[in-house]
Write a protein that binds this DNA or RNA. Structure first.
Length: 854
RNA sequence: GGGGGCGUGGCGGAAUUGGCAUACGCAGGGGACUUAAAAUCCCUCGCCGAAAGGAUUGUGGGUUCGAGUCCCACCGCCCCUACCA
């Protein structure tokens, strides 16, 4: 299939990708080439790709992810770093369990089969993982430590059990964390979750909300959009908590009962025309009980429960509410406001109660319009005619507006007592003044509210890490003693027959570790995201059976310097891991505050038409479809060359063919230029003509390639290598072998091989040995040094502009003075500036001369 | 509604601090080799124009000697998020 070329009186061997790749993969494995060195004299670099879920063989997305990481890791090694580059499998999860149910087999079996296949493909791609450090999260040696950490968190009050309404996925038959309800649907199966009241286990991520938010600013190596997504998710909001007294049934007399609201707009308190509770509110149920309002309330509550989380989305949705028959007393004005129940209020945000200010909030406005509640103007734009009328008005005189929208965020207070005339808005002087007043009178206080909820980690599924707790009727929840860890998953369940841990007495029947009486194990397992929240720490010390990892190992390697993975984990995995790291830091187990210094979210690989690849669409391009005809090196090159790593790209078979053409061309050029060449010092001062030009190109392009690797811009690093191959090809064509500089030729051949080695390792290894005659491995070859001085040429072409437009190009000595440049430039454009006055001349050496003539 | 990002030839994309826009590649055109084809090699290749030349980085304005790059407004696209009070 591959040709040989008859040129320069010598035959270039054919490039046989399959033979070369098979040969070197075997050698690398036999020689354990990719074993981590652990050489403390070198600076460390920890390169990590997000480990895969073994749902089958690897797909294009994995191939891209790992190719990027592998190129980084290999180049870092050549640059003299001690590199940790591990891989493993995020092996717990539902697909394994579902497959086991379907085929009446064991989840473990399905999982380990898939892992074996994925590892085979990884090796076939030539990835430089330290396979000795590989582990799977479903290995008891690993999940034992996840259980241990859970117990440590429990001891510190960071893990707890609580009963509250949770998202239950009817398809996956388990609860979900808030983060796992994406656009109102289950992140895994797309079903619409139901709300259920259940006793579940949580991790107290909210304790770290502020730090998780603040430390985002430290993450200068993270993409802006990921940080923005996390900020939004954490959702910090500064406001005030304000206490309203519940009025007695007469509607005016204050009682001792208080309902507090959270608001970011305390400045609008004079505009409160009602208060709203959510339909799930226990207080609302209690207040309407036995009244004539009860029936309407119950109907609303039932209707709300039927509306799915998907339908609840969108601000266009109509609001529904019912009056409770009761009133609350505005603490500032002392006036009563009716208490309503409405479906636009969320039970679990803020205090679960909202003060209704139709003038200042669009939702309240819509609600007031629908139910005929007053809309008193208390904030105005200065342009509004109402402002002139009310600007000095302290009492509530006008009780309704004819606006069709709530007042915009900012304006000036009117009809607001002593605060009238102040500027209102979020974080405004009016807010400060009113909150100060509330604090003084003991009925309000500043409050910081987060949107982030605690992390619900229990799952009612088999294939996960068991929660290592025992429930005893006498002692309550008791942790499993450390010497009994791990709590092992039983492997004799017949999942196909619908058996679960909750129905497996051999699993759950036990005795209380505290009092010894019969007790029951918790049969929930932990969210798989707990397993992936610390795996990067385990790689530093994967065989440790006395601790999750040693302090020394984790201190040596953490933080991860380059973390590469998909954007879909912007919140989920990346937020959980940050939390977990901070918890372990507070336990004294790690020193770092943040686990991942630089984050690269690679783009998606789509099909030829720009559609996402999926089995159901039948448009999946498997990696083998490229590796089989062209080899792994072509695959790797094509993936990295076609687009910058963070961008999506559409799969293009022509681009793959092009990558293969380049590899073959570069192969031949390396062979040709290295023929008759000799390793030795290149004396740049003795080079002339084509040799001098080639040497100059070598250093220029070498610097560019090196910089591009540093920036993670593999596509341009490759284009620099291509230019060098082109330059070498021209040299070989134009200069007979006898006239070539032997040392330079050797160096160019060598540098092309080393510059492409991180990307096309098999190709490079073969040339390293066969064309260059070197021994060892190109993996251990130091990255070449390039010299900026030698990249400069004697003569440069610069542009001559007249008033910013290029009018001529002149060749000048590279070291010409500004005066010389200006003189040469004036001469070059003499015609254009004739008869004009030169007002200014800008000289940028090496680039251009701009003559401003009028 | 809120947040983040993007807009450059037929296509993927380059242009590191404001300094010769379109590097590198794909596709296209021409040629060499071949009985022929494939492969390979060489040349050519953004737009209008015969040419001289001109216009050009979504649109309009601004700053500057000079703007793809900075500022303002608008148009279009993508992603995330959402009754968050």
């Amino acid at each position: 299939m591959c040709d040989s070329t008859q040129q320069n009186d010598f035959e270039v061997p054919a490039y046989d990708a399959q033979a070369i790749e098979t040969k070197w993969q075997k050698t690398w494995e036999d020689e354990e080439l990719y074993k981590t060195d652990e050489d403390p004299s070198k600076p460390k670099k920890y390169v990590l790709e997000m480990f895969p879920y073994p749902s089958g063989d690897l797909h294009m997305g994995h191939a891209r992810n790992y190719t990027i990481g592998d190129a980084m890791a290999r180049q870092a090694r050549m640059r003299g770093y001690d590199v940790l580059h591990p891989m493993g499998f995020d092996a717990f999860g539902l697909p394994a369990e579902n497959a086991a149910i379907k085929h009446h087999t064991q989840a473990a079996k399905w999982t380990y089969q898939n892992i074996a296949q994925a590892v085979k493909t990884m090796k076939r791609m030539g990835f430089s993982y330290d396979y000795d450090r590989m582990f799977n999260t479903c290995d008891p040696e690993y999940y034992k430590w996840g259980q241990w950490m859970f117990i440590e968190m429990w001891k510190r009050g960071l893990a707890y059990r609580a009963t509250s309404p949770v998202n239950w996925c009817p398809t996956c038959k388990t609860v979900l964390a808030n983060e796992q309800v994406v656009e109102g649907r289950c992140w895994r199966c797309g079903s619409i979750p139901e709300k259920r009241e259940l006793s579940q286990w949580y991790l107290k991520i909210t304790d770290y909300a502020q730090e998780l938010l603040d430390d985002l600013d430290k993450l200068t190596g993270w993409p802006e959009n990921v940080k923005a997504q996390q900020r939004n998710w954490i959702g910090r909001s500064e406001g005030a908590e304000i206490d309203f007294k519940l009025a007695a049934e007469d509607g005016v007399t204050p009682t001792d009962r208080t309902i507090s609201v959270f608001t970011t707009r305390a400045d609008t308190i004079f505009g409160v025309s009602f208060m709203v509770l959510p339909p799930e509110s226990d207080l609302a149920a209690e207040l309407v009980k036995g009244t004539r309002y009860e029936a309407d309330y119950k109907a609303l509550k039932a209707a709300t429960e039927k509306v799915s989380s998907v339908d609840r989305q969108g601000s266009a949705r109509e609001k529904h509410g019912v009056f409770t028959g009761r009133y609350v007393i505005n603490p500032v004005t002392g006036k009563p406001a009716p208490l309503w129940v409405a479906d636009y209020v969320l039970l679990d945000y803020g205090t679960g109660a909202v003060m209704g200010v139709p003038c200042g909030d669009q939702r309240d406005f819509d609600f007031a319009r629908k139910y005929g509640l007053p809309i008193p103007p208390i904030i105005c734009q200065k342009e509004d005619p109402l402002y002139e009328e009310l600007k000095d008005e302290r009492e509530l005189r006008v009780t309704n507006v004819d606006w069709d929208h709530a007042m915009a965020a900012e304006g000036y207070l009117v009809q607001s007592g002593q605060f009238t005339g102040m500027k209102g808005g979020k974080h405004s002087e009016a807010v400060d003044a009113i909150v100060a007043w509330l604090e003084e009178h003991g009925c309000g206080r500043t409050k910081v509210q987060f949107r982030l909820r605690d992390w619900l980690i229990s799952r009612q599924r088999y294939w996960g890490n068991p929660i290592p707790m025992v429930h005893c009727d006498c002692c309550g929840d008791v942790p499993v003693p450390e010497d009994q860890l791990p709590v092992r998953l039983p492997d004799n369940l017949d999942l196909g027959a619908g058996e679960t841990l909750a129905e497996c007495p051999e699993f759950y029947e036990t005795t209380c570790p505290k009092c010894g009486k019969p007790a029951k194990r918790i049969t929930d397992t932990m969210d798989t995201f707990t397993c992936s929240s610390w795996y990067y720490l385990r790689y530093t010390d994967p065989h440790n059976d006395e601790a999750p990892f040693s302090k020394a190992a984790v201190d040596r390697w953490m933080p991860v310097d380059n973390y590469i993975g998909g954007i879909e984990h912007a919140i989920l995995h990346l937020l959980y891991s940050r939390f977990w790291t901070k918890v372990l830091r507070d336990m004294g187990m790690v020193d770092v505050d943040e686990p991942f210094t630089n984050l690269l979210c690679q783009g998606m690989v789509k099909d030829e038409n720009g559609d996402t690849m999926s089995k159901s669409k039948g448009n999946v391009v498997p990696p083998s479809s490229v590796i089989d005809p062209y080899g792994a090196d072509t695959m790797r090159l094509a993936i990295l060359f076609v687009a910058p790593p963070e961008k999506d790209f559409d799969w293009d078979p022509e681009a793959v063919a092009g990558a293969n053409r380049f590899i073959k061309r570069a192969w031949r050029v390396v062979w040709l230029i290295s023929h008759g060449a000799k390793r030795g010092e290149v004396d740049a001062s003795k080079l002339s003509g084509a040799s001098a030009e080639l040497n100059r190109a070598l250093h220029e392009l070498g610097i560019k390639c090196t910089n591009d690797f540093d920036r993670g811009q593999f596509n341009t690093a490759i284009s620099a290598s291509m230019e060098l191959v082109n330059a070498a090809s021209k040299y070989v064509n134009d200069v007979p072998e006898d006239n070539r500089d032997a040392a330079l030729s050797w160096r160019v051949a060598h540098d092309i091989v080393t510059m492409l080695a991180p990307i096309c390792p098999h190709w490079a290894e073969e040339l390293f040995h066969e064309a260059l005659g070197l021994s060892g491995s190109v993996y251990n070859e130091p990255w070449p040094e390039f010299d900026a001085e030698q990249a400069k040429s004697d003569m440069v072409e610069i542009a001559v502009q007249v008033k910013g437009k290029v009018r001529a190009r002149i060749k000048v000595a590279a070291d010409a003075s500004k005066e010389e440049l200006e003189a040469a430039a004036r001469e070059a454009v003499a015609e254009q500036i004739a008869g004009k006055t030169v007002k200014k001349v800008v000289v940028v050496p090496g680039r251009l001369v701009n003559i401003v003539a009028i």
